[in-house]
Lab assay of single mutants.
Amino acid sequence: VGDQVLEIVPSNEEQIKNLLQLEAQEHLQLDFWKSPTTPGETAHVRVPFVNVQAVKVFLESQGIAYSIMIED
């Protein structure tokens, strides 16, 4: 199991704000291929294997929908 690319769908401005804060966490080494800008629009982010669980827990705790787009 390696890195994953998640497709994330924020449903409101609050969730977009939370994702932008997540993007700013440099220690997570997230690679946003497509940043969140509009509710209902997908964002794509590559998550290093060591941080996959932490990111998924965060998304679930914020009620942000996501799916695994690419499993490496």
Rank of each mutant, 00 (worst) to 15 (best):
1 V>R: 14
1 V>G: 13
1 V>F: 11
2 G>N: 10
2 G>C: 14
3 D>Q: 08
5 V>S: 05
5 V>E: 05
5 V>T: 08
6 L>E: 00
6 L>T: 00
6 L>D: 00
7 E>R: 15
7 E>M: 14
8 I>G: 00
8 I>E: 00
8 I>V: 08
8 I>T: 02
8 I>Q: 00
10 P>C: 11
11 S>Y: 10
11 S>R: 11
12 N>C: 04
12 N>I: 02
13 E>T: 08
13 E>N: 10
13 E>S: 08
14 E>R: 07
14 E>F: 08
15 Q>D: 08
17 K>F: 11
17 K>Y: 13
17 K>W: 12
17 K>N: 09
18 N>V: 15
18 N>Q: 14
18 N>F: 15
19 L>P: 01
19 L>G: 00
19 L>C: 03
20 L>H: 07
20 L>W: 12
21 Q>R: 13
21 Q>P: 01
22 L>I: 05
22 L>A: 03
22 L>M: 06
25 Q>G: 05
25 Q>I: 10
26 E>Q: 12
26 E>Y: 14
26 E>A: 12
27 H>E: 11
27 H>D: 11
28 L>A: 03
29 Q>W: 06
29 Q>I: 05
30 L>S: 02
31 D>Q: 15
31 D>K: 15
31 D>M: 14
32 F>A: 02
32 F>L: 03
32 F>S: 02
32 F>T: 02
33 W>H: 07
33 W>D: 07
33 W>Y: 14
33 W>P: 04
34 K>Y: 05
34 K>W: 07
34 K>G: 04
34 K>S: 06
35 S>F: 14
35 S>C: 14
36 P>M: 04
36 P>C: 04
36 P>H: 02
37 T>P: 06
37 T>M: 09
37 T>L: 10
37 T>Q: 06
38 T>Y: 10
39 P>Q: 04
39 P>T: 04
39 P>V: 11
40 G>D: 04
41 E>H: 06
41 E>C: 08
42 T>F: 06
42 T>M: 07
42 T>N: 04
42 T>S: 13
43 A>P: 00
43 A>M: 12
43 A>S: 10
44 H>S: 08
45 V>T: 01
45 V>S: 01
45 V>M: 11
45 V>H: 01
46 R>F: 10
46 R>E: 02
46 R>C: 09
47 V>I: 09
47 V>C: 03
48 P>S: 07
50 V>Q: 13
50 V>A: 14
51 N>K: 06
51 N>C: 08
52 V>F: 13
52 V>E: 03
52 V>P: 00
53 Q>D: 12
53 Q>I: 11
54 A>N: 05
55 V>A: 02
55 V>N: 00
55 V>L: 12
55 V>F: 15
56 K>N: 03
57 V>G: 10
57 V>E: 13
57 V>K: 11
58 F>R: 02
58 F>K: 02
58 F>E: 02
59 L>S: 00
60 E>A: 07
60 E>G: 04
61 S>E: 12
61 S>T: 11
62 Q>R: 15
62 Q>V: 11
62 Q>G: 05
63 G>S: 06
63 G>Y: 04
64 I>N: 00
64 I>F: 04
64 I>D: 00
65 A>Q: 12
65 A>M: 12
65 A>L: 10
65 A>V: 09
65 A>T: 12
66 Y>R: 00
66 Y>T: 01
66 Y>C: 01
66 Y>M: 01
66 Y>L: 01
67 S>E: 06
67 S>K: 13
67 S>H: 06
68 I>Q: 04
68 I>K: 03
68 I>P: 03
68 I>C: 04
69 M>E: 04
69 M>K: 07
69 M>N: 04
69 M>V: 11
69 M>R: 05
69 M>A: 06
70 I>L: 11
70 I>Q: 10
70 I>G: 13
71 E>W: 12
71 E>V: 08
72 D>M: 14
72 D>W: 15
